[in-house]
Design a protein around this nucleic acid. Structure first.
Lengths: 175, 175
DNA sequence: GGAGTATGAATGAATG
DNA sequence: CATTCATTCATACTCC
């Protein structure tokens, strides 16, 4: 990630062949740094969803640096793409406010605040159903539970405002 | 990827937590006791895998107590759930004979955790209970995408005759 | 102050 | 493509 050490020297690269059963638990692919570098370069170049052919070729090339299979390349791109998207989505809605240093409330008071407006909403998760047929004619590819509207922005919760009723219920009411 | 960025670029400038990791340097998120408390309460309530927007909301709330990002919440739940499962599995396998190996563990933390887990714990969220398939039943769903036919050959490197040495050059021209 | 542990972070491997 | 699980790495913390 960003602020982490750059000195992670894993013992990767150990794809030794044979060597008597390889006591090492070669459960999953452990890419070498060269392999990672090449893959990252490819990604940076713009490659996001390589075709089967491309995967084959990449795998062949990378096999020079160590054991690798096509599915590893496939998964690598899948994961890399998904995680970059995820990270972007999070950071987008994350940092804006750093109001976290004015006056520290006690834990009980905070919990009380979380209970504000104990709506009988009872959000049990997995029910993100809400009509979105208002704009845009529903394209066939509009299915998917894309509840995560990318333009999800500020959520005003009145952090430091009126609050009483210091119960320790904490029913996730703010969710 | 950008995992090669020096050391701490991040400073968790004082938000003097109630206790816990105050005074820590920078590097990785060090939750305050209040944050941990709230997260644990949420977990106890039954929340195990919060959705993206739930994560964001939780993060927003917890940011009052100190620096926090969405990914921290994400990882927290991920780890907490995984380790509880891991622990449970370990205990399950670890009980071949009913020896009171309680003396060996001798840790109040362990006891506390046992006490914690044995709680009824109603999961109010997409519980995938129903261990119908928990008994092997090797219904092979390992379809392995389209890469079951991996042409990877261990002895034929240098397919394109273009690399002969890990020079990291690799112009990506083979695509 | 080093061993052992708790835990944050990362990622490979899936599944739907 | 979104989400999840398992495993591992890295580090903060605790206790001799």
């Amino acid at each position: 990630m960003d602020e982490v050490s750059g000195f992670c020297i894993k013992q990767r690269g150990g794809y030794g062949g044979g060597s008597g059963g390889t006591g090492t638990k070669c459960g999953r692919w452990n890419p070498t740094t060269e392999q990672v570098k090449v893959l990252t370069d490819l990604f940076r170049t713009g490659l996001r969803t390589p075709s089967t052919d491309q995967i084959q070729k990449i795998s062949s090339q990378l096999s020079f640096y160590g054991k690798i299979e096509s599915k590893n390349v496939f998964y690598w791109f899948q994961n890399h793409k998904a995680r970059e998207r995820q990270k972007r989505r999070r950071v987008l809605v994350d940092e804006p406010n750093d109001f976290h240093h004015q006056d520290k409330l006690s834990s009980t008071k905070y919990l009380a605040e979380l209970n504000h407006i104990s709506e009988p909403e009872r959000v049990l998760e997995t029910l993100q159903l809400f009509p979105l047929n208002s704009f845009r004619e529903p394209v066939e590819s509009e299915k998917r539970r894309l509840f995560a509207n990318d333009y999800y922005k500020e959520n005003s919760y009145n952090i430091g405002t009126q609050m009483d009723h210091p119960t320790l219920d904490l029913r996730l009411s703010f969710l």
